[in-house]
Design a protein around this nucleic acid. Structure first.
Lengths: 334, 334
DNA sequence: TTGTAAGCGTTATCAA
DNA sequence: TTGATAACGCTTACAA
């Protein structure tokens, strides 16, 4: 059994109240008592029991984070941003994975509720009506990161997918491309699907380029989606010179098919990714891609949440800027 | 405020003891009472307070996981394996990141101790003497995954790095290679460095190939290490035909340099990676690599830990088998 | 079938 | 400067 303040109290001959004061550096005790308590605490290997403290303080100094499967590489930096900020403020972080489709989201929410987290961050997950209703019932400060919940007032911090997509396509157009594919997009996804399609379409339209729906290939952000999309594009003899991908992994799939089919990137085909994940620097060629400031999103998000916890005020949603990172996967058409 | 069993007791007119029984399906109450309690609990949005339960039961149904930075891609599956097994057994998981060098390990250990996790898994982190001493003082069932602590009796589950390295090099030799580089290795790392160098050396020796220390390029498992290693190898005009890399990311670095310098993989240079991380399938060409069964390691590890928690017995260390996954980055020399 | 009450480890109020 | 003690939300003998 681990030592408790009672043990320390007994061993030092003071009351548990005094032990508690000393341990929490509250002042109001003699130097002599302080030294003795600290000494004995050390000898006994005392460690405070956060669960007990949570009970009386009615706060757990814990924030919960729910994310999809760990599989996808870019999440890392969001978590880093959150954890750094949380630790700096004396909070710890409970992480759970809810599965790609959020299969385990209900379970995760239960866990967070039962652990009485002080605040909750959910990221990159599309919320179902059910999810939203249990979230509402939870009554915990909540923030959505890199996603949003339509028709609700749940605050979110994310990049504007429409604008980012528009910018990527416009960049390609400015580089002289007019036959541009869109790879790996999920039109059923209201958050990261529809807006990107719309951005793609509008960019073309604004530059008086006739959109061709056959150049839009559906998928799910995966490497496989990219392969499938590019394979189709090639086998249908679509005369494209560029393809915009909804994720870097999808872009790698495109790159891979280009390579095996003998198309050189960027000379024959230009490719733009999305995420600026670590793989985008490691690919051949390194990917030009849309960067979302993941670390900052995590950090800013966590900070907002902490403020909300402290003040009880609601969090304001934020659209944060993306950046287009130019590497070597796009060539200018002459 | 969230409802408590007291609220339910008051609202239903029974005692808290009975409410507790009903909620935990302990039996020994009338159907009538059961229905009423459940009904009111639902109305009040009751959720049990795990912290309070932990306090009285002296167990948190929680296992702690400490890992390096999230950055590196392959960790995902270990975590998945752990989480799946934990959830199946009614445990939840608290994850923390201790930084690449384990900078924050002490902090993480404190957190885990103060949250009173029932068991602890640490993976891919080299433990300092200090770390080990605080771990000892913790007195929590502990398991090391994909690492070990020398000169201690802390149980671990990992692949035999020496054998894996030996196998990779032998595979290259069997394919007719004799001039083989070793890229990205850290000779100061007693767990994942030294043994791999030794495996490399011994494989060469066993096949009567004279080792050349100039072909061993130090590094830190990163993409950059791979680039640096391959660049050196080329600029030193080392007449190699193959290189074995200590990680897939390092291999990608090698691939990248080969590409820009005009060497074809695998025709000019064969490359073998280590980890079988997701990127190894997405590279050009797809990487032949050493696969560690990460998901299984997580799952088996978590199961062993759960058993140790339940029985109080100590965990037996396990060496688990690796596999060599053949893809397209190695060619046979004729 | 149900209730009373002690106890888990800690904090915080009040009194001394 | 210190100590009693109630309280946090829950479980669990023990009694009824």
């Amino acid at each position: 059994m681990v030592a408790t303040i009672k043990d320390i109290a007994k061993a030092t001959g003071v009351s548990t109240a005094t032990v508690s004061r000393v341990i929490n550096h509250l002042g109001g005790y003699s130097k002599e008592v302080e030294l003795k308590v600290l000494q004995i605490a050390k000898e006994l290997g005392y460690r405070k029991n956060e669960n007990a403290i949570s009970l009386v303080k009615n706060t757990t100094k814990t924030i919960g984070v729910i994310m999809p499967d760990v599989a996808t590489s870019f999440y890392g930096n969001i978590v880093n941003g959150i954890e750094d900020k949380a630790y700096d403020n004396g909070y710890s972080v409970i992480l759970t994975h809810a599965g790609v489709e959020g299969k385990r989201l209900q379970e995760s929410l239960n866990l967070m509720a039962e652990r009485r987290v002080d605040g909750l961050i959910i990221f990159s997950l599309n919320l179902s009506v059910q999810d939203i209703s249990t979230i509402d019932s939870l009554d915990i400060p909540l923030l959505l990161l890199s996603t949003k919940a339509e028709n609700t007032k749940i605050p979110y911090i994310k990049v504007d997918d429409y604008s980012a997509s528009y910018a990527a396509v416009q960049y390609l157009i400015k580089n002289g491309h007019t036959k541009i594919g869109l790879a790996g997009v999920n039109p059923g996804d209201p958050i990261a699907g529809k807006p990107r399609i719309q951005g793609y379409l509008t960019a073309l339209e604004d530059h008086h380029i006739q959109a061709d729906l056959n150049l839009i290939k559906q998928g799910d952000f995966s490497f496989e989606s990219g392969k499938a999309a590019m394979t189709e594009l090639i086998e249908q003899n679509q005369a494209i010179t560029a393809v915009f991908c909804v994720s870097d992994e999808t872009a790698l799939g495109v790159l891979s098919v280009c390579y095996t089919r003998g198309f050189n990137v960027p000379n024959d085909i230009s490719v733009v990714g999305y995420d600026n994940s670590s793989v985008s620097q490691m690919s051949i060629p390194p990917l030009t891609t849309i960067a979302q400031p993941f670390y900052d999103m995590g950090s800013i998000g966590c900070e907002s949440l902490l403020i909300a916890i402290a003040t009880g005020k609601k969090i304001d949603s934020q659209i944060i800027p993306f950046k287009l990172i130019e590497r070597n996967s796009v060539t200018a058409m002459l």
